[in-house]
Structure formats: structure tokens, C-alpha cells
Amino acid sequence: MYEELADEGFTVITVGIERSPEDARPWIEKASPQHPSLIDIEHLVPDLYGMINVPTVVWIDEEGRIARPNDASFASNRFKLLTGLDSKRHLRRLRAWVRGDAPALTPSEVRKHQELPTAVEQEARAEFTLAWWLSREGHDEDAERHYERAGELAPHDITIRRGSMRTRGLNPMGFAFLKIAIKSALTRTPLYRRIEDSPA
């Protein structure tokens, strides 16, 4: 995708929301991308953009303006059944926008679709920052209380809840995450932010 559109004034920036650069290394080395592939161990980008889960994408235009806000998207349809997200449709739209064949969203549409962070979500992020510092200092038991508190404040924030599992000795692919997914389904609380718009 990047190679196809790189000559058209387009780039990709990937940001790995990881606990250490080593977690992202195998992924990045396998893809050996030509575009910036960054590591965000402090969750700065989720904080700045109000992201609650990954993978998610933002379209940013030549002037540095948000053309399409934070929207869950996968590079393939591997998880389509689970998430209901169609990656092909997103790629079709993206290609049309990059080539100038179709506009992204209007500013008022961007504002309408953009979910702005709440005070409680920001408190959860502050708890997470504290917990993560305590983990790195070796105070696992005290860190755990703050991870728990962050999860209570923002139960829908998967960057916090699933993103901290490995540090806490939990398996992000295992029962701990399954529990979150089941609860989300039962309470109809989406774990992904997605923009419902007309088929491209």
C-alpha cells in the first residue's frame, strides 16, 4: 500500500504501543518498512488522539489537519468476523483520498465523528502512567493497584487494560482478555471506535 502511493505525496507513520522496543522489533523487522516506524512506550499517541484500542488509524492532510479521525482499521480481513470491520473498504477510501479522487470528510464531519476524551479517561491515563512507572521500578504489587484503578475508571480503554497485561504477568491472548471481550459484548460497550459512513 505504502509503496503503491509513496510517489503521490503520501506516507505512513506506524506507532507501536508497546512496553518496550523489543516487543515491536520482530514486527518491524519482518515488514522492513521505508516509512517511519515508531515506538511509544508511554502511550503518548493514545493520550493525544484519544485512542482506546489498536489497531486504529488517523488520516492527516498536507497541512497537518485531521482529515479522518481515529477509526479502528485492520490491514487485512483476518479479524473481520470478530470486529465487523472491512479492511478493503477502508483501503479503497484511503486510495481515493490520496489520489485526490475523493475528499476525506468535511471538517464538520470530522468533528462529529471525533470522540473527545473525558475527565475520567484522562484520570485513567494518569493512573496507568503511575502504574507503568511503578512496574519499571520493580514495585509490582503497588503497580497492580493502579492498573486495577485505571481499568475501573476506563473499562473500555483496551490500550490500558490489554496493553498492560504482559507487564502484569497476564496473557493478552488468554482468558483475561476474553473476559473483557465478553463483558463488552454483554454490555454493548464497543471496544473499537469506528466511523459508520456510507459504503465507498
Binding site: T11, V12, E18, V45, P55, W59, A67, S73, L94, W97
Partner: peptide
């Protein structure tokens, strides 16, 4: 440039 900002994770 137009930028596609992609946040992802290994977990």
C-alpha cells in the same frame, strides 16, 4: 504529505 497514522500493538 498526506499521512496515514497507524497505531498498533503486538498484544
Amino acid at each position: 504529505k498526506k499521512v496515514l497514522l497507524v497505531a498498533y500493538a503486538s498484544w
